[in-house]
Write a protein that binds this DNA or RNA. Sequence first.
RNA 1: GGAGAAGUGGCUGAGCGGUUGAAAGCGGCGGUCUUGAAAACCGUUGAGAGAUAACUCUCUCCCAGGGUUCGAAUCCCUGCUUCUCCGCCA
Length: 423
Amino acid sequence: MLDPKLLRENSKHLAERLATRGFSLDVAHFEILEKERRQLQIKTQDLQNKRNLSSKTIGEAKAKNQDVKTLLEEANTLNEELKTTEEQLTTIQNQLHELYLQIPNLPQTTVPLGTSEKENVTIRTVGTVPSFSFTPQDHVALGSKNNAMNFDLASKITGARFVVLQGQLARLQRALIQFMLDIHTKEHSYQEIYTPYIVHRDSLLGTGQLPKFEEDQFALKGEHPYYLLPTAEVSVTNVLRNEIIDAKKLPLKYVCHSPCFRSEAGSYGKDTRGMIRQHQFEKVELVQFCLPESSYELHEALTQHAEIILQRLALPYRVVALCTADLGFSAAKTYDLEVWLPSQNCYREISSCSNFEAFQARRMQARFRQGTNKPELLHTLNGSALAVGRTLVAIMENFQDADGHIHLPSALWSYMGGIKIIT
RNA sequence: GGAGAAGUGGCUGAGCGGUUGAAAGCGGCGGUCUUGAAAACCGUUGAGAGAUAACUCUCUCCCAGGGUUCGAAUCCCUGCUUCUCCGCCA
């Protein structure tokens, strides 16, 4: 959510900045609502004040055993007017709140302008793309050996866009999770955290998945409006919802492994083959809470933390700054990490590292306090480090040999019980 | 799943339906004292919103949402959470 004050004072300017990311704000409509809200609020508060005073008078009169009949009649008339005014105010406040929830974050000033993902800017390219003396297979073909990666089996159990991993591939996925968690906890000093995989509406509202992206979520049937976790960003960021934390404790850094569930509505026909786009996948997520003045510095650092995983795994990748048009709803700035996939002969997203500034914190009322100052909104950051399923795919495809064996990067050997090659 | 109890400020904890935004204690902050610290003493100390050029003033908030009432932290209903007991269970 944007700062309502800022929006009121600068609606035209903000509308221009929002337009760069393809969002059109109806300034006229907004200003009408705001004007109405303001008038109704003043009127309501005035009537409430009168009501409070009159009640006090009645109390005092009663204490002196005076007759309060006329006072009561006056109070009743006042209350009728107050009631309708309050209802009008509530209606308009709700309308405004709905509107606020629909407005995406402002792109930060360094975000490249663009009208489509084609205008994303590559910041750096790391590692060398492998060259093969044979035609490399994709992970689906590689994984079909011994049924180690089995999509038919998954669809028998559940349906399309799920996978069953068996044997050494299942182990490799587990090894990757451990490997990533170890690096972030030991080398980057993140606190490991385990959270529920089911969340309620308020959590999704807090991080910005709702109300706009309802169709991307898996909603659970039952008496509670529960959803499957689309990313640990949701559960971990909401740790500080409605909290005021001591500035001395900042930055707060969490790492969380979780499965992620996405309905992938609207992506029919996209990446239908293989493990790239699934309804369920594993991810290791980094989340940070920090002071506003340090969020951009920490955003760079967090991106580095994700990059280090790719480097240790010897995977070729590039870092891309998303342009205004490609920015996610809640993000002010995002770097995507894209890993090389030989079968597709291109780089594919494996991580997304974003600075949300105060956008999520305002929705969540996540604040900090410095000394005895007034509470202020935190800045939140997060990034995948990494998407585990896609990392598995990248390892299989980049490190295959002519026989279809996978030569594991040395960083994983100890996590695989000494296994260096998956045959 | 069944039966009970409870949810008040950073924490502990009072609070007959009417100057209670809320006693008291702890903690925090400022001060006195002290070479310094501790102790003691004094003062101060919630959040959000609106009006105003400003001093200030007003409104809302005692888990959440409804209701009763001129007036609700206090009464009623629903939900959520926590605790205790029973049942079931990885």
